[in-house]
Nucleic acid binder design. Structure first.
Ligand SMILES: [Mn+2]
Ligand SMILES: [Mn+2]
Ligand SMILES: [Mn+2]
Ligand SMILES: [Mn+2]
Lengths: 220, 220
DNA sequence: TTAAAAAGTTAGCTTATTCTAACATTTGTG
DNA sequence: CACAAATGTTAGAATAAGCTAACTTTTTAA
């Protein structure tokens, strides 16, 4: 039972909204908003996906992926992140350029190609944004991630991942001299708005709380 | 004006039927047959492509690509062959496995990716079947190709390309010990059915005329 | 030169995906 | 509670592709 590119994108969106965001409830409007389509279109597709046993929900109720639906989404995320890694490491794509093309490449149907790509890349476990790449067996552990905003003044940390949903954020992270594994020293947290003064490569920079909420670190 | 994957495939099919085959006339039925769809569907799409100035024809008349239509087709062929080369050289895909996946990959939209892929591959000029890869500027010279069947008994040649339209042919070519650049010695041509006795790597093999018509060589 | 055969076109449906506008249900608040 | 806002659903239409059956035009060939 082959799925269309569109059906795949809906399942991936649902996975992000239910399994990967803190608010693990997802509604029709939210899904529509996320995908940039009308609620009516989302509702229409949800009916179809329910018919294929990929999504489970009652009329006016909460949306959930079935086990099958989740499996499809995880496979898609695996492909997406492997392609992003390829584009970044071998095609000279910058951090913020990889996502759009990977959004297309993730729909290529060829188990052999994915297996070979994985091997070619040296079985990477993280994509260019630091996100975990699901295994070939569907294993997908999301290690607990601490945000930069959760640290205290005086703490030091290592940048392990960045929210990849905004290209502007990715460009900004590079602009201020950060990259995966950069060491960050929290100098001061300003109570007024939660902004932080951080030390990166010896340079003192000021970042907003919105920024610090989307950057994930490992405390040192 | 973005084209759909389907429109792209029609243009590529028309290019093969008009520019690349000896019979440079193409009709609706032929196109339909080539694409595995009904003549009615082909006719329907032809109207649309005519409206977009990619195909030129009069009702009941011969089909032709416009300059624009040709340019799209050549870009597609370039992408197809670059991907085939990538799959063969870096993803361990055999000669006969590359085509299907390249048929999908050719529709990925990203000029940067194609430029980088070309660089990554070392600016190859031939794909794994020996077909010429069009240049980034749209240049596409098809060097005159001699078929194995055009040689005389006693001639020696080098295999330069193989018709890639049949996977069975590609597998057969490998099976009898041939690969690009193999040296072939024509021992005898049998008048009855045009079949040939050829010497490959010291082994005498018998091949049919149908086979020899689809294998391209350079006389030595 | 005329009548099949072949080739090409049209009409009318189907499925997939999306939209807008209208309608229904649920939620949240005074 | 009661009703307004938020959320979700339905109806009806559009676009893109494809199909079958019927019809028209061109070609072939007796
Ligand atoms: Mn991404
Ligand atoms: Mn996608
Ligand atoms: Mn090919
Ligand atoms: Mn294709």
């Amino acid at each position: 039972m082959e799925l269309t590119k569109t059906e795949e994108d809906y399942l991936k969106a649902l996975f992000h909204l239910t399994e990967e965001s803190e608010a693990d409830k997802a509604g029709t409007n939210q899904l529509a908003e996320y995908l940039g389509i009308s609620p009516a279109s989302a509702n229409n597709m949800l009916k179809k996906l329910k018919g294929k046993a990929l999504v489970a929900y009652e009329k006016y109720g909460k949306l959930e992926l079935t086990g099958q639906g989740k499996a499809v989404a995880v496979r898609l995320i695996r492909k997406h992140r492997l392609w992003e890694t390829f584009l970044h490491q071998h095609m000279n794509f910058s951090w913020d350029e990889v996502h759009g093309v990977a959004e297309q490449l993730e729909h290529i149907q060829s188990p052999k190609l994915i297996a070979e790509l994985d091997r070619f890349l040296g079985f990477p476990r993280r994509d260019p944004h630091g996100a975990v790449i699901p295994g070939a067996d569907g294993e997908y552990d999301t290690p607990p991630k601490a945000t930069l905003s959760s640290l205290q003044a005086g703490d030091a940390c290592r940048l392990v991942a960045v929210d990849d949903s905004s290209e502007a954020l990715l460009r900004y992270v590079s602009r201020i001299g950060l990259a995966l594994n950069s060491r960050i020293q929290v100098e001061e947290i300003h109570e007024f708005d939660g902004s932080l003064s951080i030390l990166v490569e010896g340079v003192l920079t000021m970042v907003s709380k919105q920024f610090a909420d989307r950057v994930f670190v490992e405390k040192l």
